[in-house]
Amino acid sequence: MQLTGKITRDSLMTLEAYSKYRKERKSEVIAHRKLRSVPLGDHINLQFESELTIRYQIQEMLRIEKIFEEEGIEQEIEAYAPLMPDGSNWKATMLIEYPDVNERKRELARLIGVEDRMFVEVEGHPRVYAIADEDLDRENDEKTSAVHFVRFEFTPEMKAAVKAGASVKLGCDHTNYPAHTMIAPETLASLAGDLR
């Protein structure tokens, strides 16, 4: 998969070429996705997106839906491309995971606003809170969604610190879900590549 920094119709593979690529490289993409997955506590997981993960998602949707017409391809790009980091930020799909349906229902009611209480803290710099769900509102007065899309914006100084090897903490200071974790060095190395 050719990474170009911008996803356009012309930079995507044909369905035939993607089918071949998928057979040869699916395990590499899964390993990349796993590397960029950061669990926070027992029930929240952040999947940090990259150009590779977003290209793969678009190609998968085109393959599954058998989309090959220009308009359909553009719609998929418009839906997923905004989830790709643009050099000054990290973007992630945030999953709230409770296997038991009753527990999940109860906890989603207790976790209203949790997406706005997610933060990253670069060593030596103040916390940066998530900008959540820019696509649409994902909660109501009764519960939050189990899936959110979050963006963490960095100052030039924070970007330089991450690229120079500063440690980074991922956390949440929601009253009903206080948690934090240090991002593993190998994950952080991958995420640092998103910053320009």
Rank of each mutant, 00 (worst) to 15 (best):
Glu134Arg: 15
Cys172Lys: 11
Leu35Ile: 10
Ile77Lys: 00
Arg127Leu: 09
Ala130Asn: 06
Gln57Lys: 14
Arg106Val: 00
Leu191Asp: 02
Ala164Met: 08
Gly72Trp: 06
Thr144Gly: 08
Asp141Gln: 11
Met13His: 03
Phe152Thr: 05
Ser50Glu: 04
Leu3His: 07
Gln2Glu: 13
Ile183Gln: 00
Glu24Arg: 15
Thr144Cys: 06
Thr53Glu: 11
Leu62Val: 00
Asp194His: 15
Arg9Ile: 08
Asp173Ile: 11
Thr8Asp: 02
Pro99Asp: 02
Leu191Cys: 03
Glu71His: 12
Gly193Arg: 01
Val168Gly: 00
Arg22Val: 11
Arg127Ser: 08
Glu49Lys: 12
His148Cys: 07
Ala161Tyr: 04
Ile131Gly: 14
Tyr129His: 05
Val38Ile: 10
Ile44Ser: 05
Arg127Val: 11
Met84Pro: 13
Asp135Cys: 08
Val150Ala: 02
Glu74Pro: 07
His125Leu: 12
Glu28Tyr: 14
Arg104Ser: 13
Ile54Ala: 01
Glu121Ala: 12
Glu71Lys: 14
Glu71Asp: 11
Arg9Tyr: 07
Ile44Gly: 02
Asp194Cys: 14
Ala166Pro: 06
Arg33Phe: 12
Ala184Gly: 08
Ile30Thr: 14
Met182Cys: 12
Thr155Asn: 05
Met61Asp: 15
Arg104Phe: 05
Gln75Leu: 13
Glu49Asp: 11
His148Glu: 06
Arg110Val: 08
Lys23Leu: 13
Val114His: 09
Leu191Gly: 02
Leu191Ser: 04
Ala161Arg: 02
Ala160Asn: 05
Lys23Tyr: 12
Arg110Phe: 11
Ala179Phe: 04
Gln59Lys: 05
Ile73Trp: 00
Phe152Cys: 04
Glu157Lys: 05
Trp90Ser: 03
Glu71Phe: 13
Asp10Lys: 15
Arg33His: 13
Ile64Ser: 14
Met61Thr: 15
Glu153Ser: 15
Ala92Val: 07
Phe152Glu: 00
Leu62Asp: 01
Thr53Met: 08
Glu139Gly: 04
Glu115Lys: 15
Lys105Glu: 09
Gln75Lys: 14
Ser37Tyr: 10
Ser145Ala: 09
Ala92Met: 05
Gln59His: 10
Glu103Tyr: 12
Thr53Ser: 13
Asp137Met: 14
Phe68Arg: 02
Met1Lys: 12
Pro82Lys: 06
Pro178Lys: 03
Leu40His: 10
Val128Thr: 11
Asn176Ser: 10
Lys6Ser: 12
Gly193Asn: 07
Ala179Asn: 06
Ile67Arg: 00
Gly165Ile: 09
Glu69Leu: 14
Leu3Gln: 08
His148Trp: 03
Leu46Ala: 04
Ser190Asn: 03
Gly113Tyr: 06
Val168Cys: 03
Thr8Cys: 07
Ala160Gly: 04
Thr175Asn: 14
Ile30Cys: 09
Asp137Tyr: 12
Phe154Tyr: 00
Glu28Arg: 13
Ala130Met: 01
Leu195Met: 01
Ile73Asp: 01
Leu12Trp: 01
Ile7Gly: 11
Glu78Thr: 11
Leu46Cys: 06
Leu52Cys: 08
Lys91Ser: 06
Phe119Trp: 05
Pro82Tyr: 03
Ile44Val: 14
Met94Pro: 09
Ala146Pro: 15
Ala81Tyr: 08
Ser190Gly: 09
Ala166Thr: 06
Ile7Asp: 04
His148Thr: 09
Lys169Phe: 13
Pro185Val: 02
Ala160Ser: 06
Ser50Leu: 02
